[in-house]
Design a protein around this nucleic acid. Sequence first.
DNA 1: GAGTTTGAAACT
DNA 2: CAGTTTCAAACTC
Length: 598
Amino acid sequence: MDPSDDNSNIEELIYSEEEDLAMETVEMEESIDEDSPGTITGDLLPPKSFVTIKPTTSQNHPVQLKTIIAGKGQPSVSAQMQKLMGRPVTIVSKAGSVQGSTISVGSGTKVATAVSHKIALQTPGKKIITISPAQAQQLKLMASSASPQHLTKVKGLSSSPGQKIIVKSAGASGKLSGTFIDMAGVSKHQVMVNPPTILNVAASPSARPPPALKQVTPGMNKVQVVRVINPKTKQETLQKIVFASPPKMIKTEGGGVVTAGPPPPKLVIQGKNGQCFYVASTAKANVAKYTPPSPRGPNPKPVSKIVLDKDKLKVVFPEPTILNASVSSTSKSFPVHVFTNKSSKHASTTVTNVRNFSCKPLSAEKKVEVRERVNIDKLLEGGGLGGDDDSGKRRPCNCNRSQCLKLYCECFANGEFCKDCNCKECFNDLAHEDERQKAIRLCLDRNPNAFRPKIGKFSAEDAIRRQHNKGCNCKRSGCLKNYCECYEAKISCSSNCKCFGCRNVEGYFPANAEDSGSSISGVKRSHSDADPQQATARKQACNFMTPDVVEASIQCMIAQADDCQKSSVPFLLTEKMILEEFGRCLAEIIDFSFNNDY
DNA sequence: GAGTTTGAAACT
DNA sequence: CAGTTTCAAACTC
Ligand SMILES: [Zn+2]
Ligand SMILES: [Zn+2]
Ligand SMILES: [Zn+2]
Ligand SMILES: [Zn+2]
Ligand SMILES: [Zn+2]
Ligand SMILES: [Zn+2]
């Protein structure tokens, strides 16, 4: 096998290294039963063949999966398979025994992943279908049945390109192409691949470039210039304040009510990165105050808002009003001092890093609420691009159809305005603040945490053990590509994730505190010496149900059904034999897991 | 740069 | 809530 041939195997390589398999040579070979001839040709009863995958450094307990033999097709079954797989299928070998039954699908398949009791099938198109056990039963029946009308039920089952395999035949020098059966990513290649470098860049104010002066660009609204001082860098910058919508009665659908005297104007300060603070002035609290809606309810529209750069944490108005910030425990909050020439009163300010604009209960005394939409948590966590997109390196979006007012838009999802983006018909700017607010409300309605950091969590404990709040749902990436939000954030998948064939498991990324050094070497600790607490939270590296394994298993079962059909085995017996085949597959998988002490 | 793949978000 | 569609980014060539 040429290690360089298939670049689709790269992830496997990375994975195997991470799983401490780097030092093992894993061999995949076709083993021929002793009592069978060593040839695989012809229409005769083919030998029992297995694909054996065994780490050479471990004991002799190779995992055996049924194999895949290339050869001539058999009309009825291959026709069925063809329908099933959505492509020509050649089934060559008809195994003499149940154990030897094999099928081959021409160019490799991407079939399905089974997790727990569900099986996910990927159609040639692109869709993943999950079938319940009951449906799986149907599938089996169908596979063994000759009646075509059943076939429609499994139209989704298909083969897929890409997974090429070269099976080294024991006797022959020829190569067989077939499905790559990959037990938990074990690969024959012995390649050292360094794990991705993890950058845990804490948000360091000093590392940031000094805030630049902000040019005041009056929009449709009244604009005022404000000096903003970064409390850490002591640097000042100008910000613009936009007095947006005129005072209005404020209604909140969530039951929160704002009966308003004329509320103060809306304040908006936009920072250079599009991050923003909202300042909702509730100075006339006795007149205009709102009842915080139910946690789930939509938030009242901020009466005033200030949008400013995340770096600039002080807002300075000509005549000072000092606002004390209350610091929320988990979100990054800053003392904010607002000096205004409009009012000489002192006011309290609640500063919350509420990217979601959620309505935090306001204490009655607070007179001004500052809402900050800055994506600070993410930066702090070093999640995703965090840490380095910090200083204005925010990635521009390229939205075409969402108007940047849906969460599809990264800018919008981060609570930022679009700036220097490549979007079309962008509404995510000051000029469309009303629409924007509406969109925000809509999002919050759907998901109150929509604008919260996806990675951090709310307890201190979870902050240490970073994990994706919702978890990912990856089906085909093995959580080893940036499609996966966990992987993208450089964190291991957790119990929150519902991914199939996950390889982004514990140990893939260095644990936060202690593990820093070892992971670079690619040597994975066994979970015995890992932090047990962490072990519970992170996804364990014991996921043997990779798509390939599942596929192989399914193939075996289908082959079994096929054999029975061809031998006119009674229906009930067929069913039983298929189940037995399934059992054998499971046993082999379990066997493998035991022999590979993860 | 075009085309494909992917999984989150949105929608029904 | 599940199934489907839409979307923009990630990825591949
Ligand atoms: Zn956008
Ligand atoms: Zn944008
Ligand atoms: Zn935009
Ligand atoms: Zn994932
Ligand atoms: Zn995950
Ligand atoms: Zn995962």
